[in-house]
Lab assay of single mutants.
Amino acid sequence: RKEMTAACTPRRRIINLTSVLSLQEEINEQGHEVLREMLHNHSFVGCVNPQWALAQHQTKLYLLNTTKLSEELFYQILIYDFANFGVLRLSEPAPLFDLAMLALDSPESGWTEEDGPKEGLAEYIVEFLKKKAEMLADYFSLEIDEEGNLIGLPLLIDNYVPPLEGLPIFILRLATEVNWDEEKECFESLSKECAMFYSIRKQYISEESTLSGQQSEVPGSIPNSWKWTVEHIVYKALRSHILPPKHFTEDGNILQLANLPDLYKVFERC
């Protein structure tokens, strides 16, 4: 597991931080080997919608929660590849102030007048994250320049770009939802926020969305749709870069829909 690298990086740093090793061990302890084997050997059937997909393993048909699986995938990559990410360069710098204002204007932020003026909160978020810029760049390849612009994001899987519609809320939550006081809790909560931002979430995906850094293989055609990215990038990574937690067998994120021999018997009677 320590050699797990989802995106190509030129050289690998050895990380011996106790906090990170502890988080890696927790993933191992909570892992479910049968689910790992199923995901490793599954045959992708198709997307139901951005949140759900169908896959077959041996004779069984499964309904998989793409949102939760991708979130767990990105969390584990962030923990196992800690401080070893490439950088996704933004085509132009994104001012943190503008991103924070967009987030505060969104109902998702939960902002009320009692929280104070949005401009003041946005300025605080910019200054707060600028103070964390060195650590964010060093460990997470999340790059913020001296003017308070976001200029780079971590490359977690080759050819995958997170849904940038979720970027404003991500920046807001970096400042408000991460435990910045304790090292282990900081790395864990920061990785979880980043994983949620990178995950496939239906509120940020339309039929026209593209999450891939590449064009489709047909010359002159439109960019790959999110469905292509889910199948050929995300579920491909799920084959080798995730140890599913045991609770996925109990919380409805992986559901067995049918045993195909039983279905064949039904059709034979028709």
Results as ranks from 00 to 15, higher is better:
residue 218 V to D: 14
residue 136 L to E: 01
residue 243 L to G: 03
residue 28 N to V: 12
residue 245 P to D: 02
residue 170 F to K: 01
residue 64 L to T: 07
residue 139 Y to D: 03
residue 186 C to K: 04
residue 167 L to V: 05
residue 54 L to A: 06
residue 127 E to P: 03
residue 107 P to V: 14
residue 183 E to T: 04
residue 14 I to C: 12
residue 13 R to A: 05
residue 212 S to F: 14
residue 120 G to S: 10
residue 150 L to Y: 01
residue 58 Q to V: 09
residue 135 M to P: 04
residue 32 H to T: 07
residue 121 L to A: 07
residue 226 W to S: 00
residue 200 I to K: 02
residue 86 G to K: 13
residue 241 H to T: 07
residue 115 D to F: 07
residue 188 E to V: 11
residue 38 M to S: 02
residue 103 A to L: 02
residue 123 E to G: 11
residue 108 E to H: 12
residue 39 L to V: 05
residue 100 A to C: 09
residue 122 A to Y: 02
residue 60 K to A: 11
residue 48 V to G: 02
residue 19 S to V: 03
residue 36 R to E: 12
residue 59 T to V: 07
residue 58 Q to H: 09
residue 52 W to E: 00
residue 136 L to M: 09
residue 141 S to V: 02
residue 49 N to G: 11
residue 46 G to C: 06
residue 172 L to C: 07
residue 167 L to E: 00
residue 40 H to M: 11
residue 21 L to Q: 11
residue 30 Q to F: 11
residue 55 A to C: 08
residue 218 V to W: 09
residue 242 I to S: 02
residue 231 E to G: 03
residue 99 L to W: 02
residue 145 D to M: 01
residue 97 F to K: 08
residue 222 I to Y: 12
residue 164 L to E: 05
residue 159 N to K: 14
residue 224 N to C: 12
residue 30 Q to V: 15
residue 200 I to C: 06
residue 54 L to V: 15
residue 246 K to C: 12
residue 194 C to I: 14
residue 198 Y to L: 03
residue 221 S to N: 14
residue 110 G to R: 12
residue 150 L to M: 07
residue 124 Y to A: 14
residue 15 I to D: 04
residue 84 N to G: 04
residue 239 R to P: 00
residue 111 W to C: 10
residue 80 Y to L: 10
residue 171 I to C: 09
residue 50 P to I: 11
residue 91 S to I: 12
residue 79 I to V: 11
residue 233 I to S: 08
residue 84 N to I: 01
residue 1 R to T: 15
residue 60 K to E: 09
residue 50 P to T: 07
residue 80 Y to E: 09
residue 109 S to G: 12
residue 50 P to Q: 10
residue 241 H to N: 09
residue 267 F to S: 15
residue 139 Y to E: 01
residue 254 I to R: 02
residue 220 G to R: 15
residue 218 V to C: 15
residue 219 P to C: 11
residue 193 E to P: 00
residue 91 S to V: 11
residue 71 E to Y: 11
residue 248 F to M: 14
residue 43 S to I: 10
residue 95 P to N: 14
residue 16 N to R: 09
residue 178 V to C: 06
residue 187 F to M: 06
residue 66 T to V: 00
residue 259 N to Y: 06
residue 247 H to I: 08
residue 146 E to I: 13
residue 14 I to M: 11
residue 8 C to V: 08
residue 216 S to R: 14
residue 243 L to A: 10
residue 32 H to S: 12
residue 179 N to M: 11
residue 218 V to Y: 13
residue 144 I to E: 00
residue 261 P to Y: 05
residue 262 D to I: 05
residue 113 E to M: 10
residue 64 L to M: 08
residue 218 V to T: 15
residue 11 R to F: 12
residue 210 T to N: 09
residue 46 G to D: 13
residue 26 E to K: 09
residue 244 P to W: 01
residue 68 K to M: 10
residue 83 A to Q: 05
residue 157 I to F: 02
residue 250 E to K: 08
residue 22 S to A: 07
residue 13 R to C: 06
residue 159 N to H: 09
residue 33 E to N: 10
residue 254 I to T: 04
residue 270 C to F: 13
residue 148 G to H: 05
residue 39 L to I: 08
residue 181 D to S: 12
residue 95 P to D: 12
residue 10 P to V: 10
residue 248 F to L: 13
residue 28 N to G: 14
residue 145 D to F: 00
residue 109 S to H: 09
residue 104 L to K: 00
residue 93 P to Y: 05
residue 97 F to T: 09
residue 226 W to C: 03
residue 204 Y to V: 04
residue 6 A to V: 07
residue 100 A to K: 01
residue 201 R to T: 03
residue 40 H to C: 14
residue 193 E to C: 07
residue 66 T to Y: 02
residue 101 M to E: 05
residue 21 L to I: 10
residue 190 L to C: 07
residue 36 R to T: 12
residue 228 W to F: 13
residue 205 I to R: 03
residue 249 T to P: 06
residue 49 N to E: 08
residue 86 G to W: 08
residue 97 F to D: 06
residue 15 I to K: 04
residue 157 I to P: 00
residue 156 L to M: 05
residue 88 L to H: 14
residue 219 P to T: 14
residue 250 E to G: 07
residue 3 E to C: 09
residue 48 V to M: 08
residue 87 V to N: 09
residue 36 R to H: 07
residue 2 K to E: 12
residue 161 V to P: 02
residue 76 Q to W: 01
residue 119 E to V: 13
residue 76 Q to C: 01
residue 233 I to Y: 04
residue 140 F to Q: 01
residue 94 A to N: 15
residue 270 C to H: 14
residue 240 S to C: 12
residue 231 E to L: 02
residue 53 A to V: 14
residue 22 S to N: 14
residue 87 V to I: 15
residue 39 L to R: 01
residue 110 G to Y: 12
residue 216 S to I: 11
residue 26 E to I: 06
residue 182 E to D: 11
residue 167 L to N: 01
residue 181 D to I: 12
residue 211 L to F: 13
residue 52 W to Y: 12
residue 8 C to L: 12
residue 163 P to A: 13
residue 187 F to Y: 06
residue 228 W to Q: 08
residue 88 L to R: 14
residue 182 E to M: 10
residue 227 K to L: 04
residue 32 H to Q: 10
residue 35 L to R: 00
residue 117 P to W: 07
residue 80 Y to N: 09
residue 231 E to N: 03
residue 184 K to V: 07
residue 42 H to V: 15
residue 149 N to D: 10
residue 222 I to V: 13
residue 56 Q to G: 09
residue 77 I to S: 03
residue 155 L to N: 08
residue 64 L to Y: 04
residue 139 Y to W: 04
residue 186 C to R: 04
residue 224 N to Y: 15
residue 241 H to W: 09
residue 192 K to I: 05
residue 138 D to Y: 04
residue 178 V to Y: 00
residue 185 E to V: 08
residue 224 N to A: 14
residue 122 A to G: 08
residue 6 A to Y: 04
residue 58 Q to W: 04
residue 212 S to P: 09
residue 124 Y to W: 08
residue 192 K to M: 09
residue 173 R to A: 05
residue 152 G to C: 11
residue 266 V to C: 15
residue 121 L to P: 06
residue 59 T to L: 13
residue 71 E to W: 05
residue 62 Y to R: 00
residue 211 L to R: 15
residue 154 P to K: 02
residue 33 E to Q: 13
residue 21 L to V: 12
residue 106 S to R: 08
residue 49 N to W: 02
residue 226 W to Y: 05
residue 247 H to Y: 10
residue 191 S to D: 01
residue 228 W to M: 08
residue 236 K to A: 10
residue 75 Y to W: 04
residue 121 L to I: 12
residue 86 G to V: 05
residue 176 T to D: 04
residue 248 F to T: 03
residue 107 P to H: 14
residue 12 R to P: 06
residue 176 T to N: 14
residue 98 D to R: 07
residue 153 L to Q: 01
residue 214 Q to Y: 08
residue 153 L to F: 04
residue 251 D to K: 07
residue 235 Y to G: 01
residue 215 Q to E: 15
residue 217 E to W: 11
residue 119 E to F: 07
residue 143 E to K: 13
residue 88 L to D: 05
residue 71 E to T: 06
residue 220 G to F: 10
residue 41 N to R: 10
residue 249 T to Y: 09
residue 72 E to V: 06
residue 47 C to I: 14
residue 242 I to P: 01
residue 100 A to V: 12
residue 245 P to L: 03
residue 130 K to F: 13
residue 216 S to K: 10
residue 122 A to P: 01
residue 107 P to L: 11
residue 228 W to P: 02
residue 249 T to Q: 15
residue 164 L to S: 07
residue 261 P to N: 14
residue 135 M to T: 06
residue 241 H to M: 04
residue 84 N to D: 05
residue 106 S to F: 11
residue 227 K to Y: 04
residue 141 S to W: 00
residue 112 T to W: 10
residue 158 D to S: 13
residue 210 T to K: 08
residue 266 V to H: 14
residue 82 F to I: 06
residue 59 T to Q: 15
residue 220 G to C: 13
residue 121 L to D: 04
residue 237 A to T: 07
residue 162 P to M: 02
residue 269 R to Y: 04
residue 75 Y to I: 02
residue 22 S to P: 08
residue 84 N to L: 00
residue 79 I to F: 02
residue 84 N to C: 05
residue 72 E to I: 06
residue 96 L to W: 02
residue 188 E to P: 02
residue 220 G to E: 15
residue 135 M to V: 06
residue 118 K to F: 10
residue 109 S to K: 05
residue 238 L to C: 08
